[in-house]
Simulated assay, not measured.
Amino acid sequence: MSRPQDAKRPFFPFGNPFRMLSPKGTKISQQLLLVLHAFEAKLEERLKKLIPKSKDEIVSLSWMTLAMHALCESHNDIKALITDLELPVCDWDEKWIDVYLDISVKLLDLCVAFSSELSRLNQGHLLLQCALHNLRSSSSEQYVRACSSLDRWKQHIGSRNPRIEKCGSILDDLLGSLDIPKVKKSAKGKVLMQAMYGVKVQTVFVCSVFAAAFSGSSKSTSVPEVADIYSWASTFNELRNLVNEEIRVRFSRGGFTVLNELEAVNSSVKELYPIIQGVADTIETESLVKIVGELGRATEKLSQGLDLLTKEVDSFFQVVMTGRDALLSNLRPGDTVIDSIVGVNRDAQVVN
């Protein structure tokens, strides 16, 4: 099975969604249209839930957790749709299979990168806990140790993650072009094509927001506006424009981070420094207790948010992996070399 190395690959192997809306070709039955409309209605409902009531909710760990959970649901719905359409994987064109496997590896790469960054951010929790422990003492020596822990925390959080640095190029590949070689006329294939297009848009959008938040750069791939021929286009475009604009504004301010919970911790740290750096005997106990309490609450909220988001990213990894494994299992009886199609050992680490 050949894989041209130089061709620009689309995110999903089912062709240009605009082509399927042409009156030419196979006519889609009313029953299939109802299936498609039900799928797109659920997709739109998920997108609506991601539209924040306030700009302060944007790029928070809680919003990112909700976004990743919605992504898991949409990918699970695609699996269910394939079953409902009775479109067995073994009947797919070889090029579809080739591209699907290639894309699934890229999605797994993103999951591994996001998980590694969440783990790195969580590692700073111990430094914050050490600082809080020392700040509960009235000893000037303990304050010096607290400053040291906070300095190390800022240095740790401010460092770069090589895996996150690679996300931009992966997202560029995923966005790509939607055009692929023509596939055989199939009403079921057209329904699946349009459904997959919606999930593709949602996937690249969510992952691009994650990459921007974790990398500290707004250069990550941004999904273009969706044409209004789709029932969910208006909702998606509203969400896209709101989130992208807020991220752009935050980056323009040159803040420590665009992540709400992380910025809250940093704000408390900045407020503590003038109090505990070399002026121990002028500290007002009541003021110090208040700020230390704020830092403690912000630290706990950050830790809890990171833990919840980590679980959702892990869930998405499993959704992608099980979908990939299901494809391989369906093909294995008739193709013993399918595992080598994309040059990746399924049991090996996805990201080096």
Rank of each mutant, 00 (worst) to 15 (best):
S2W: 12
P4Y: 03
Q5C: 10
Q5R: 14
D6R: 10
P13L: 01
F14W: 00
M20Y: 13
L21S: 15
T26C: 13
I28V: 06
Q30F: 06
Q31D: 10
L32A: 07
L36A: 04
E40H: 08
E40M: 06
L43K: 14
E45T: 15
E45S: 10
E45F: 09
L47C: 11
V59Q: 09
L66Q: 15
A67C: 13
A70T: 15
E73I: 09
S74N: 08
H75C: 03
D77W: 02
D77H: 03
A80M: 05
D84E: 06
L85V: 00
L87H: 00
W96Y: 07
Y100E: 14
K106Y: 08
D109M: 15
C111V: 12
V112L: 05
S116M: 03
S116T: 14
L118E: 01
L118N: 00
S119W: 13
S119R: 07
Q123S: 06
Q123A: 02
Q123L: 05
L126I: 15
Q129V: 13
L132Q: 04
H133P: 08
H133L: 03
N134P: 02
R136P: 09
S138A: 01
E141T: 11
Q142I: 07
Q142C: 15
R145V: 04
L150A: 04
K154E: 13
K154L: 09
G158V: 11
N161Q: 10
E165D: 14
C167R: 10
D172T: 09
D172G: 12
S177F: 01
D179E: 13
K184H: 11
K184Y: 11
S186P: 05
G189W: 02
G189S: 06
K190S: 14
A195T: 07
V199L: 04
Q202E: 09
Q202F: 08
V204K: 03
S208W: 00
V209L: 15
A211Y: 02
F214R: 07
S215V: 00
S215T: 02
T221R: 05
E225Y: 06
V226C: 09
D228R: 12
A233I: 01
S234E: 14
S234I: 09
S234N: 14
T235C: 13
N241D: 10
V243N: 01
N244Q: 12
E246W: 00
E246A: 04
R250N: 05
S252T: 12
S252Y: 06
G254A: 04
T257P: 00
E263S: 15
A264H: 06
A264L: 01
V265R: 03
V265I: 02
N266F: 05
V269A: 02
Y273C: 11
I275D: 05
G278R: 00
I283L: 03
K290A: 10
K290P: 09
G293N: 07
L295C: 12
R297W: 08
T299L: 02
K301V: 06
S303C: 03
D307K: 13
L309H: 11
F317R: 14
T322L: 08
G323V: 02
G323E: 01
G323I: 05
R324S: 10
D325M: 07
A326L: 08
L328D: 07
N330Q: 11
L331F: 04
R332S: 12
D335W: 11
D339Y: 13
G343W: 03
R346C: 01
Q349K: 13
N352M: 08
